[in-house]
Design a protein around this nucleic acid. Structure first.
Lengths: 321, 321
DNA sequence: CTGAAAGCGCTTACAG
DNA sequence: CTGAAAGCGCTTACAG
């Protein structure tokens, strides 16, 4: 594999000139430049990334920081990583996934996901390279998020427009996550906008799994006359549907159930769940692109972006009117 | 960020000794080693990978070569990458996905997937670093594969033991892929072993998608009296089920249909498809571990491993007896 | 517009 | 068991 020195010798110039032709071609005289370029072509010269990294203090490696709680093999994690991988590979950046705040290797930038509200300060403290966040925060940090508020708002509105008024909600029981309240607030706003009072007895907080959805739906069905249950995850919705079945309520005819995520669980039940589809792949991809931008042009102004999710229409919502 | 020189100064040794503590701790005197280790700890020294890469000609970057035909966002690609990511990240190797045979950056090793039979020679020709293959080949190259033969054999045997004798098969129409014939041969062996003649009129080759499964199932249902159709992918099985419906055949009561893959498509239909579940995540993970082994201990003998897939029992097979 | 020199932070023989 | 010296392949001021 030819190196810069050989190219220089062959072209009758110094290595510095070769370096310039590669990095700042415009400051090299045209003839010199063309001569060097033809030699690069001929010798199939490929820059040595390691040498470049050493001298320029760039590694071309990105760390993807994903909190332990998030399983890599779940659809959520996989879609996220797939989006990142596609964007980074395009630009020849490599990456690895780290699970701890401390890490023995350097990188050019970090993509962080699954950070809870109380951990946000750690980002500034622990990460000394450009960092972008999946989610949103009060920090002045670049981020891309799924617009959870608008997703829950749209879904609740869809229920209302389908003729439902008594709409319960099962909220994920993790008060340290912003998206939890974003979704709850979207629900509240849709109700309020349509003149439906927000009733605290229709708001239940449950563990984010099938069991949690089951228990909280049991409560809703036992204590109230809900005609629709808005679940803030598909896992919760699966449990809610089981609860309806136990109450001899047909889904969707007697009770409508909606989900949130749209990454596969919505298909596991009959009827399939009408849900809010999170664009996780897209979020990962945009985060990676944003990070590269920050690394290569540090003066880029801060960007905090929201991606609007779409409703995935299936068969768990009954149109009353 | 502290460098080796500072660590050396602080510990009262030379940089060489620090280097040894990191790379060959066993050849350094215990007290010296412990002293250096404590300084590394105290100064939060992180090795500079770029410098290491330059001098040792190691990049700590792996290229995952995935042929263009395979979409990264399909479950197959995502599970594969997830397995690789988990294994590599564990050892602090980063990776990127490449889609072309030519590539401008160096790496320590390559994980290749989706290589067709006629492209196998290109591996030796184009890849000059340790390479492991998802699949199997006639080359002396390390590989991990799903045991497609045994998967198809097990499934066919399951059909036979459920009382089926007239079993058709829809084979993926790509004669350049080894797994295609592995699956067909598994089917044949199961039949032969149970004294059932292999009938060429029950073997159809179709495009690997829903349409392909539909057309070929139409042929089977029209020309023969099959009571079971063994599809060599879940996409094919989806189409086969549609064909049965058109023929007013109930699945599974009139015709059993089986799939292959088990990565999500099997849930898209009612009844859900009994299928062979490919351990793609595991294959990716084992390949990455194998590759690291090859890189770090080049004298490791060649390994060509098969992972046995399991049948995912759903509701598309009828037990006749 | 071009080049000589220094240096990025490591590792690798080679001595001792 | 430890260290001095050379060098990996580049880029970055600094001269000219």
């Amino acid at each position: 594999m030819a190196n810069m020195k050989e190219v220089a010798k062959y072209a009758g110039v110094s290595v510095i000139t070769v370096s310039r032709v590669i990095n700042n071609p415009e400051i090299v005289k045209k003839e010199t430049r063309e001569k060097v370029e033809s030699v690069i072509e001929k010798l199939k010269y490929q820059g040595n990334q390691a040498a470049r990294a050493l001298v320029s203090n760039k590694t071309r490696v990105i760390h993807v920081f994903i909190k332990q709680e998030i399983r890599m093999v779940d659809p959520f994690g996989m879609h996220f990583v797939a989006g990142i991988s596609d964007a980074l590979s395009e630009k020849y950046y490599s990456f690895l996934v780290r699970r701890d705040w401390d890490f023995p290797y350097k990188c050019d930038g970090i993509i962080a996901m699954g950070i809870s509200k109380d951990e946000e300060p750690l980002i500034k403290e622990k990460f000394s390279v450009p960092t972008v966040l999946f989610g949103h925060s009060d920090l002045d940090i670049d981020s891309v998020d799924v617009d959870n508020f608008s997703g829950a708002y749209d879904m609740t509105k869809h229920l209302i427009e389908s003729g439902h008024k008594d709409i319960g909600i099962i909220v994920i029981n993790d008060i340290n996550r912003r998206y939890v309240f974003d979704r709850l607030n979207g629900y509240k706003k849709a109700l309020t906008e349509h003149g439906i009072p927000v009733r605290s007895d229709l708001i239940k907080f449950g563990e984010n799994n099938e069991q949690g959805g089951y228990y909280k739906a049991i409560e809703l069905l036992g204590e109230s006359n809900v005609s629709a249950i808005c679940c803030t995850s598909d896992a919760l919705a699966l449990g809610a549907i089981r609860a309806c079945r136990q109450f001899k309520k047909n889904v969707p005819h007697d009770v409508s159930v909606t989900g949130f995520d749209g990454l596969g669980y919505e298909m596991l039940t009959d009827p399939k769940i009408t849900t809010v589809q999170q664009p996780v792949y897209e979020a990962g991809k945009e985060l990676a692109e944003l990070l590269i931008e920050k690394i290569e042009k540090p003066e880029t102004p801060m960007i905090q972006k929201m991606i609007k999710p779409q409703i995935l229409f299936n068969n768990s919502v009954f149109m009353k009117e």
